[in-house]
Each structure stands twice: as C-alpha cells, then as structure tokens.
Design a protein around this nucleic acid. Structure first.
Lengths: 201, 201
DNA sequence: TGACAATGTGAACATTTGTACACTATACTG
DNA sequence: CAGTATAGTGTACAAATGTTCACATTGTCA
C-alpha cells in the first residue's frame, strides 16, 4: 500500500472505526486491515494502538473486538410525533400518531413531538413545518416557550406572566398576544418546548 | 448447577444478554457461562442458540461476539458533534470531538454535527448555538444550505450559483455575500445541512 | 411410571482475533 | 542531504471465542 503522510491515514482509520462502532459493531484489527487494504495486520493495529494512546479510542487488552469508542455514547429514546393535539390531550391517549423521532435518553421522559403550523413564532426561529420536542407539564415559567391549548387548537407561544395574568406571546409583530382573561375559551398548557428541529431535505 | 424448569433459565439468559448488549457489549458464550455459573460452555451456548432459533437473538456464525439483539434495528444512529472544524476537515485534519447526537437512521451516513456561531443565517431560522446536522459532500446545488470552509473557518451559508460563480449568501441583511472569485482564500464545501436543532433547556 | 425432550457436564477442536518481532519504505525536518 | 520518526510488510504465536460430540441429569407429560 502507498505510504500516507503522517496522521492522515490515522484519521481515516478513526472515522471508519467510529462509523462501525456507532453502528453497533466495532471492527476487529483485521477488519480495519481489509477495509483499507493493508497487507499486514500490523499496519492496522499500529493505527488503532496510536488512537488509543491519543485517548481517542479505548480498549480491553486481549479481548475480541476489544477496541471501543471513548466517552459515553448517550443512548437514544424514541419520542412520538403527534399529528393533531386536541382537547384533553394531557390525559387521554395518543390521538394521531405520526411516527417517532430519536431524542437523547434522559430528556425523553414524558415527551412528545409536534409539527409547527403558522408563522407566529418566526422571530424566535421557529418556522412552519418545524418539529418541536415538548416535555409534558401543566405549568411553565415566564419566558418559556410552551405548547398551549387555546380552545380547540394547539399552539406554540412564549408564555408571559403579567401581574398575575398569563399571556401567550407570539414572536412575530403580525400576530397579537393572547391574554387569558380576554378569552372565553379554555387555555391550558400542554408542555414546554425543549427542542426545535427542522429538516432541510 | 441445579437444573431449571424448561424455558426459565432461557429467559434469564436473554435478559442478561440484552442488558449487556444495550450497554454496547454483547457478551460471549463464556461470559454468559460465567455469569450464570454453568460448569460447561455448552450450557450457555445451548441457550444462546435456542434464543437464535426462537428469533430473539441474531448471530454471525463464527465471529467473535457474534450474537446480537434482533428486532432492535435501532431506528436511531449516533452522529459525532465536532467542536471546531479546521482546514482539511474532509480528510486530513484531526477532529475535535464534542459528543454525539442521535439522528433518524437512514440519513446518518457520512454525517456530523456542528454548532452554529454568529447571526448570519438568522432569517433562515438558524441561530447562534443551534446544532446543524451535516451530510458530508463536496458539492451542492443552488439554494442548498451548506457548511463551507472559508479560509480557516467553517461557516454556514446558503449556496448560490450565479453565472458559473459560486456564492455563499447569508440570510441576514447585516452580512455580505461571499463571492468565491473575490476571495483569495480557499473556499471548500464540507457538506450540506440536512437538519437544524435548537435546545431550549 | 416410563419415555422424551430439555438441561447440564466435560473435553476437545477450529477459527477468529489480539500481540510480538524483525525488517523495509516513505515522509518530514533541520 | 542525512537522520529520524512514522508508515507499511511478513510471519509467527497465544489467547479469546465459537463449535462439536458424547454422555449424565432432570423436568414434563401421556
């Protein structure tokens, strides 16, 4: 095999190893060898050992498939994406399941995801079509971005507490704040938005 | 070892195996043997083979640590979060790893994540501190949002092709487009932004 | 109770996989 | 341009690990 500039092949080996390890199957020395076409096992092994010495890989000496990624790869959990959210969604069963999205475990407890409709939160960088990850809770602090049920419709707004009143503020001058007292309709907080995601195809 | 009622020990073996596998390290036949105090490797092996026959485990015959969980075709894959991105990031440079984030399986091939700095893409809803998921590729189409290396710095911009020229457009009137010819510096495309994420604590 | 299948023991064997050592080739630096 | 650290080759060995075969033990059920 052609000789590579120092460090360059090491990087490629590391990325190959990481790809495979994140797929759940850390490669063996010989699998690395074959992947890069080394004629000697030792070429692959040298790179792996160097990566261990650099602290970029871990290993259990002697064990088969003993090389590992360093650090913790946080386990992921799936969170349901709800199509529509209707009154009573706090307690009743999931209405309209629209798939799942992965979230880091730990924050996934009591969460659901929701697709954003409308431009009312545009200036907060929340656009139509975005997916918001929501932690279920029925109260929220001033300044939190929440999903609230206004009448029959779930809406994403920033919650403001003003002199004891609760207001739902859009982040777009074209829209008006919703003040709870002004409103005959039921207003309930479904949860707090903890993450915003946008797919760009 | 005491003889167990049929199927009972099998269940315990499965749970043990699953625990270890979810930890990222599926046990070997002998590790199962030791965990349960079998005096023979074969006792452990029988259970594992039976679990495979039941479709509860998978295996690659002959390979070390070849038994795997089935069904758990993980719907999520982990993608590395890179701290700084340097010149040569596509192949040469040593990455500055900053953890992992879960991404829907299927899109995770050849991807990495990057934290956004600066306000230049504000009007596209990409804010400082956001995490962009990037698919590595060295070309992109007109209109794609890309991560490009301008001089020594990685930057997120919208790519425009104008009369054969490549331009990098911000989405914020306070910033100026970068036209490649105007620039003595090296401009290279690292990849295309396929997702934007923002954590709201 | 007796047959039979499932469970467990024991001892090998074959393959996979990590490890070691001696040597050659190339890239980088002063 | 010389020297040295890094990269790669070739070969062999040892430990880890999966596999196989023969036999003993026990639970289950007709």
């Amino acid at each position: 095999m052609a000789y590579s500039p120092p460090g360059q092949m090491r990087e490629r080996v590391y990325r190959f190893f990481r790809e495979r390890a994140l797929d759940g199957e850390p490669p063996t020395v010989r699998e690395v060898q074959e992947a890069f076409g080394f004629r000697s096992v030792n070429a692959a092994r040298r790179h792996l050992e160097a990566l261990v010495a650099d602290g970029r890989l871990d290993k259990r000496p002697g064990r088969a498939r003993g090389y590992r990624l360093t650090g913790l790869v946080p386990p992921a959990q799936q969170v349901p994406v709800l199509g529509r959210v209707q009154a009573g969604a706090l307690t009743t069963a999931v209405e309209d399941l629209d798939g799942y999205v992965p979230v880091e475990a730990g924050v996934a407890e009591e969460c659901f995801a929701l697709r954003v409709q409308g431009e009312s939160m545009r200036d907060a960088g929340i656009l139509p079509g975005d997916l918001v990850i929501v932690r279920r809770q029925d109260t929220a602090n001033d300044g939190d971005i929440v999903v609230a049920l206004v009448g029959d419709e779930a809406t994403v707004k920033r919650l403001r507490r003003r002199q004891g009143r609760v207001e739902l503020h859009p982040e777009n001058p074209d829209f008006e704040p919703i003040v709870v007292e002004d409103h005959g309709e039921f207003v309930g907080i479904l949860g707090k938005v903890i993450e915003v995601r946008r797919r760009l195809v």
